[in-house]
Amino acid sequence: MDKGLQSEGKMIDVQQMIERNKNKKSFGERIEKIIPFFLLLCAAVSVLTTVGILFTLLRESIGFFSNVSLIDFYTGTSWSPWSGEYGVAPLIGGTLLITLIATLVAVPLGLMSAIFLSEYANDKVRRVIKPVLEVLAGIPTVVYGYFALTFITPMFQAFIPDLGIFNALSGGFVVGIMIIPMVASLSEDAMNSVPNALREGAYGLGATKLEVVFKVVLPAALSGIIASIVLAISRAIGETMIVTIAAGATPNLTFNPTESIQTMTAFIVQAATGDTTFGSTIYYSLYAVGMTLFVFTLVMNLIAQYISRKFREEY
């Protein structure tokens, strides 16, 4: 092909060059065949991760249940692994207590924020506040834990004098603050996608904004709102660091939020940081608890997906 360049006036023949390169293309063709296979392999990693999680949890749980009976595990009311008591109820109770407190904080605040942003705030305000609110979701949980322990608890202690340093209230409250943006953001999206024509219909009848919100927007966006709440609850169930730092390490079947409790996640952290020997019953109990936790969050996520798929509003 250099010849074509040297002799002036003689134009280069691109098609001829392509023709010549075509024979070299077998390498390219081989790549073309290998690439999809490589990509599929990578896509399989996520499937393998799921399989790995299920395998891990199941196998080690089975190891655990060969030492502790399934019935004792799920019906026992005392969790004291270092003295051989494996009734998981206090851990589940702790998790539920934290989740309940968090939900009580996050759902009203998140929903009201969503209504404010979607229906009352103008575009400018929304464009500033929404991302700032979402910063709350990006703060590392260990930072929240620190905040709960060193600020929220002392603050609450001013009102509730006999509140311990470790208590479910501060932990649950801060988990609630953390999941506000999940509720607010996703609900706001759902409300925003309610078409204006529906609102205008109600305004045309003389309704106030508030009446439009409650009679038109909220019912129309209901499935999106519920899905956002369920997802936020699932997040609260799996939250680890805040409750480990602030809510204590006392497996305690109580619904008194001022007491120190222990959640499933906090137990896993405690057992993993302690001197847990590989293969011991406590080691296996990590996985039995992990399995229970996994099932809780999986069910929540499936419910959320089901709601948003089944009741997707079509406008």
Binding site: I12, V14, I18
Partner: peptide, 16 residues
């Protein structure tokens, strides 16, 4: 086009 069909030399590409 020329590049994906294997033409890489800069002088040739310039001309094309």
């Amino acid at each position: 086009g020329p590049r994906i069909h294997g033409i890489k030399k800069k002088e040739i590409l310039d001309q094309i």
